[in-house]
């Protein structure tokens, strides 16, 4: 009897120790993020200086800015979303509504999984081969945008598919029962119902491709011409010309670290890193805020509470 009691006590102590360990792990992970964010932001303190944010970079002297790189990052993101979002939505609709179970669907899923797991450097090399060499565009913004599309497409497809198939079946049946066709049901019922999840997911993936660098080194290039908005659109110095080289902020950090010759390379890199981190926070917070706003708007009209978006890599 006594022996059993001891055993129980021991089990309880072990249990408590492990509970403490789990708490320690959770706190450690949170502390690590706080440490990283704090370190980056204090090291890059002063990143909001407008001369730095919008100024032209200097190749040899200290005091250059990151204006073109920042612009390129946003412009590249917008173009790649314009290409990838319709494709991802279409593929998501296809997978959730039209695809029939069987060998072919299995193969499509294998392709999506393969695409999602491709190392970004391999996708970048594919871009180098096809867009830079074969199409003979050289290093271009559009090449970079297409490479980002390849990186982003599997995630977007999965987000759209999950969002559309999580719409409750009764909503879909009601629409079909009222005499709507399948396509009408998809465009007028399913997509509006799923839109909250889709938008949240798109913003989160946008945050991720904003910081992509490995795939862009060999596609969008390591340089930016001195931009001049007054130049004609087909001139390589017009900022909106998509057939010009475009170094993004993330690529800029890598370049400064590996071959930076400006005396303040380290300072520019830390400030740029601070901006990238802040953009990640902004994208995350924006996704959450928009999810909340849309949730409120759609709750009344749909009735069912939309499921929360899951941001996992492979489902």
């Amino acid at each position: 009897m006594n022996n059993k009691k001891n055993h129980n006590n021991q089990a309880r102590i072990v249990n408590n120790v492990w509970t403490a360990i789990f708490y320690a792990i959770a706190i450690l992970v949170i502390a690590l993020l706080v440490f990283i964010a704090e370190k980056i932001i204090t090291m890059g303190w002063g990143f909001w200086d407008t001369d730095f944010l919008f100024g032209a970079p200097s190749n040899t002297m200290a005091g250059g800015g990151i204006g073109p790189q920042l612009f390129n990052s946003f412009y590249l993101l917008v173009i790649s979303l314009i290409v990838s979002f319709p494709l991802g939505l279409g593929a998501g609709i296809y997978l959730s509504q039209y695809a029939k179970k069987g060998r072919f669907l299995n193969f499509v899923r294998l392709c999506i999984e393969t695409m999602a797991s491709l190392p970004s450097i391999v996708v970048g090399l594919f871009g180098l081969l096809v867009f830079v060499t074969l199409a003979d565009w050289g290093y271009t913004l559009v090449g970079g945008a297409l490479v980002l599309t390849i990186l982003n497409l599997p995630n977007l497809t999965r987000i759209c598919e999950m969002a559309i198939s999580s719409v409750s079946a009764s909503v879909k049946e009601a629409s079909l029962g009222l005499g709507a066709t399948k396509w009408q049901t998809i465009t007028k019922v399913l997509i509006p119902t799923a839109i909250q999840e889709i938008i949240t997911g798109v913003i989160l993936t946008a945050g991720r491709i904003f910081g992509e660098a490995a795939a862009l080194i060999y596609t969008a290039g390591l340089t930016t011409p001195t931009l001049n908005a007054a130049a004609p659109l087909d001139s390589p110095v017009n900022p909106f010309n998509i057939f010009r080289p475009a170094e993004t902020l993330a690529v800029h950090i890598w370049k400064l670290n590996s071959e930076g010759i400006v005396p303040d390379a380290r300072e520019i890199a830390t400030k740029s890193a601070a901006i990238l981190i802040i953009m990640v926070f902004v994208f995350n917070i924006a996704a959450r805020l928009i999810a909340k706003l849309l949730d409120k708007r759609f709750k009344g009209s749909v009735g069912a509470k939309p499921k929360k978006v899951k941001s996992k890599l492979i489902s």
Binding site: I40, R208, G211, V251, W254, L276, V280, N284
Partner: peptide, 14 residues
Amino acid sequence: ELFLGIPSVVYGFL
């Protein structure tokens, strides 16, 4: 989620 969003160059730079 924030960890997942931090770009790999920033990790490298850190």
